[in-house]
Nucleic acid binder design. Structure first.
Lengths: 210, 210
DNA sequence: GTCTATATTTCGATAGAC
DNA sequence: GTCTATCGAAATATAGAC
C-alpha cells in the first residue's frame, strides 16, 4: 500500500514540491487575495517551512504569476471545444459545457484571475494585450461567420463572448454567494447539470441558435 | 467664485470628511483589495493625514464595511425597476438598464463587492443570509408568476437572476479587460448603449420575453 | 535540499501636542 | 478636530547551520 521508497531524483523533488506549493498558493490567493495572502499561510497549507517557498519561487509575486498563468492556459484549452463545430449550437454549447466544468473544478483559479483583472491586471497585462486579444478576435470572427451564414441571430460577437465568460465564471467566482442562496450547501451533481442546462438554453436561444 | 467661508458646523465637517474618506477608500479597496489596501494610501488619496482616518473610522475593517454596504444598497434600489412592471420584457429590461448604468457609474463599488464575496464574504455574510436571500426569493417568485402566466419561457428563475447579475456586473468588475480588448480605451457613450442593448436583446430573447 | 533564526520593512493603530 | 511621532505586530526575504 505504501509508496515504493525509491529516492526521488532532484528534478522529481522539484516538480513535486512546486506542484504542492502552487496548489496551496492557488487556494490561499483565492481566499485572501494577493495582498491578504501571506507566504507563511501558503507554507502552512503546503505543509512546508516558509523558507522552502523562497527556495522554489524567488518572490511572492513570481509564485502568484504562475498561479494566474495556469488558469489562463486551462481556459485556452477549453476554447478548442468551439472550433471545428458545424453549428453555433454545437460549438457554443460545447464551450459553455467546458467553461462550466472548469468553474466547478477550478473555482480558485478563476477567482485569482478575476481578482487580478479587477485590480488592473498588474501582473498579466501582457497576456491581455497579446494572447487574449488574438483569441478574442479569432472567435469573434468565427461567430461573425456563423451570423453571415444565417445560422444564428445577428448579435455583437464581442458582447456574446463577454456574456459567455461572465455567466460561466460567475458560478466559480461567486460560488460562495450561490452556496449561501442554496441553503448553505454547494450545488450537487444534479444542480450543476441543471445550471449548465439553464445557461446553455438561455444563451443559445438568446442568440437564435436553437 | 470662491466658497462662502462660513465656518462649518461640527456635523458638517464630519459628514464631509467621512464622504471624502469613503470615496477614497472605495477606489483603493477596488484597486488593491482589502489586504492590499493600506490606510496610508487611502489617506493620501483623500488628502488627509493617516491619523484622521482612524479618528473617523475606528478600524480599517469598519471603513471597508461601509464601502461594501453602499454598493449593496445602490443595487437594492435599482431592483425596484423590476417591480410594478406589466411584462417581463419591461421589468427585466428596466432592471438590466439600471444594473448596466450602475456598472458604468460605480465600477469600484461593484469590484469591492465582488472581491468580498469571492473571499467568502467574511464581513457581509449576514447580508447574504438575510436581505439578499429574501430579495432573491421575492424576485424568483415574481419571475415564476410571469412563467405561469405564459409571458415568458419556463426558465429556472434563480439561474436567470445569476445570469443578470453576472452579465451586468462583468462590465464593472472586468472593465479593465474590456478596455484592453477595446484598444486600451474605455467604452464611450455609444458603446455603452450598444452593450446594454446587446445584453437586453440576448437575455430577453433567451427567456422568450420578446 | 531543508529548516531555524533573524534582518529589514511596512502596516494598523495610538499617544499627545496643538 | 488636526497632525507629528511612534509603538508593537506582522510581513517578505535571507543568512547560514545541517
Amino acid at each position: 500500500m505504501t509508496e515504493s521508497p525509491r529516492p526521488l531524483r532532484r528534478n522529481e523533488i522539484r516538480a513535486q514540491n512546486e506542484a504542492l506549493i502552487l496548489q496551496a498558493a492557488e487556494k490561499v490567493f483565492a481566499e485572501a487575495g494577493f495582498g491578504g495572502a501571506t507566504m507563511q499561510l501558503i507554507a502552512d497549507v503546503a505543509g512546508l517551512p516558509k523558507a522552502n517557498l523562497h527556495y522554489y519561487f524567488a518572490s511572492k509575486e513570481q509564485l502568484y504569476r504562475q498561479v494566474v498563468q495556469t488558469i489562463f492556459e486551462i481556459w485556452l484549452a477549453a476554447a478548442e471545444a468551439m472550433d471545428g463545430a458545424e453549428t453555433p449550437a454545437e460549438g457554443i454549447g460545447a464551450y459553455i459545457e467546458a467553461k462550466m466544468d472548469i468553474s466547478r473544478r477550478h473555482p480558485n483559479g478563476s477567482k485569482v484571475w478575476a481578482s487580478e483583472v479587477m485590480h488592473g491586471a498588474p501582473v498579466i497585462q501582457d497576456y491581455l494585450e497579446t494572447t487574449l486579444r488574438d483569441w478574442t478576435r479569432g472567435r469573434a470572427a468565427l461567430i461573425q461567420r456563423w451570423i453571415d451564414e444565417g445560422r444564428m441571430a445577428p448579435v455583437d460577437p464581442e458582447h456574446l463572448l463577454y456574456m459567455l465568460w461572465a455567466t460561466t465564471q460567475h458560478y466559480a467566482d461567486f460560488n460562495h454567494q450561490i452556496e449561501t442562496l442554496n441553503g448553505g450547501v454547494p450545488l450537487d451533481d444534479a444542480q450543476w447539470r441543471a445550471a449548465t442546462d439553464s445557461v446553455k438554453q438561455m444563451i443559445l436561444r438568446g442568440i437564435g441558435a436553437i
